[in-house]
Amino acid sequence: MKMDSIEDDKSQVLDVTRQLTQLMIDKNTAAMNKILDANFTLTHITGYVQPKEEWFSEIESERMKYYSYKEVKITVKIDGDKAIFVGQNLLDARIWGTRNNWRLQQTMQLEKRNGKWIILKSVATTF
């Protein structure tokens, strides 16, 4: 695999993961749905594994409200049509009534399908 295509893939993965965070802030679950796998799950810092539809309803009802984020550190590893994204953000969000600047690390697994990167799952921890 040529270095160019790996760099292209890395920048596409960065684009789609940043897009997801922005769409969370915009409360745009319809657009989020286009870049998330049908069986996408979000594992919260509590360890709770949340199905996509449930997460979407919490965003829409603002039980989970995202305000802004600041990137701290990001890494992307590409392996063929699979990718692992690790992003550390300071995320300003209100989750189930508690607003905080969360030091959130998200580890996302992605897969390239028909030339587009799809997010399969995301696991959140603190850093």
Rank of each mutant, 00 (worst) to 15 (best):
K82F: 09
R99L: 11
T107P: 06
Y66M: 01
S122V: 08
I119H: 13
S5H: 13
Q22W: 00
V86R: 11
S68Y: 06
V49T: 14
E111H: 00
E54K: 11
T17S: 13
L90H: 15
T43E: 08
L42H: 04
Q105V: 12
V13D: 02
M24W: 07
T46S: 14
M64H: 11
M3V: 14
A93D: 05
S57N: 02
G115R: 01
D79T: 06
Q50T: 09
S61Y: 00
L42R: 05
F56G: 04
I35P: 00
I95M: 04
Q19V: 06
K34W: 02
M108Q: 06
L23F: 10
R103V: 09
G87N: 01
H44V: 08
Q50L: 02
W55E: 07
N28S: 08
K73E: 08
S122P: 04
I118T: 03
L120I: 13
Q22S: 03
K34Q: 15
Y66F: 15
K34H: 04
V49M: 12
K2Y: 02
Q22M: 00
V123P: 02
E58D: 15
R18L: 11
D81V: 00
M32I: 09
T41W: 05
G115M: 07
T43H: 07
W102E: 09
Y67L: 04
T29Y: 02
Q105G: 12
I59Q: 01
A124G: 09
I6E: 01
M1P: 06
I84M: 07
Q12E: 10
K121R: 13
T126C: 13
I59V: 04
S11T: 10
S57M: 09
W117I: 05
E7Y: 06
Q105P: 00
K2I: 01
S11N: 09
F56K: 04
V49L: 05
Q50P: 01
R18F: 10
Y67N: 09
L90M: 08
S61M: 03
L36P: 03
L36K: 09
K73D: 15
Q12S: 02
L91K: 10
T107G: 03
G47Q: 13
E53F: 10
K27Q: 13
S5C: 10
A83G: 08
L14N: 12
M1N: 04
I59S: 00
K73W: 13
F40R: 06
E54N: 07
W102N: 12
V86C: 08
L20S: 13
S61R: 04
D15T: 07
Y67M: 02
R113M: 08
F40Y: 15
M108T: 07
